[in-house]
Design a binder for these strands. Structure first.
Length: 236
DNA sequence: CGTCCAGGTCTAC
DNA sequence: GGTAGACCTGGACGC
């Protein structure tokens, strides 16, 4: 995939059937949030001292092709260093033969693989359990996409019910779903907020209150506030 | 070598 | 509904 004059170009050496071409285009559209309409948010921050810089088009968080993949990867970020997250997700992709494995594959993968190869610790049984439910159609994670019309609260409830998914992981997955109301609060975002807001300490409730004015985009506003220097190296 | 903890969650009070 | 304690792993750190 590459960018060319404002267009996103996806190429493959494979010869695709029309049907597969459309399916893949749909997955890419999801990954790059091409259907998300952030214009209300951009209007909201147009004259915002902290966030007006983002109104030019920032805020489309890259997601995985499927919600299932985002959920599993997010579980692999919990309670471990980033290097461990990379190790676990790399092992999963190897298990999938170069692509992220289908739920069916992970459901049938032996416990010993999770333990000894991916070194996923207690997360292994969580992932295997979720994969089994998705493969067996007892759980439809793709139904959490915004297009399916569920409320944020309903989606959060489904996510929190998953093993290994708590408040942090649910908020994180929801950001990737284009549901931007909730703040991702973890051991990286909390100190980052204190540093940028020049505060000594702040309870979670206090941080949420500081971003409540962005309404359904509060979580996105929080994330952009924290990552401004990823886009603009030297903020004034 | 032991302790702590990293982009938390679960269970048991 | 709120809060200790346990939990896989492995890199960082103090001794």
């Amino acid at each position: 995939m590459r960018e060319d004059g404002g267009n996103l170009i996806a190429e493959t050496a494979a010869r695709l059937r029309e049907r597969d071409r459309e399916r893949i285009a749909g997955l890419i559209a999801r990954m790059f949030r091409l259907h998300d309409d952030l214009s209300p948010f951009y209007r909201r921050i147009a004259s915002d001292e902290q966030l007006s810089w983002a109104a030019g088009g920032a805020g489309r968080l890259l997601s995985s092709p499927t919600v299932f993949e985002d959920v599993v990867k997010t579980i692999c970020t919990t309670n471990c260093a980033w290097s461990a997250t990379i190790r676990m997700t790399t092992a999963l992709v190897e298990r999938g033969g170069g692509a992220f494995p289908e739920p069916q594959v992970l459901a049938e993968t032996p416990d010993a693989w999770y333990r000894d190869v991916a070194r996923m610790g207690y997360r292994g049984s969580y992932v295997k359990s979720i994969a089994g439910d998705v493969a067996g159609h007892a759980l439809d994670l793709e139904s959490l996409l915004p297009a399916r019309g569920r409320s944020d609260d309903e989606v959060e409830e489904v996510l929190l019910a998953l093993p290994g998914v708590g408040p942090y992981a649910a908020a994180h997955v929801m950001q990737l779903l284009g549901r931007h109301r909730y703040l991702v609060l973890d051991s990286w975002t909390r100190p980052a907020y204190l540093r940028l807001a020049k505060k000594k300490r702040a309870a979670d409730a206090t941080i949420r209150r500081a971003f409540a004015r962005y309404g359904e985009h509060a979580g996105l506003a929080f994330w952009l506030f924290l990552t401004r220097d990823w886009v603009e190296p030297t903020p004034p």
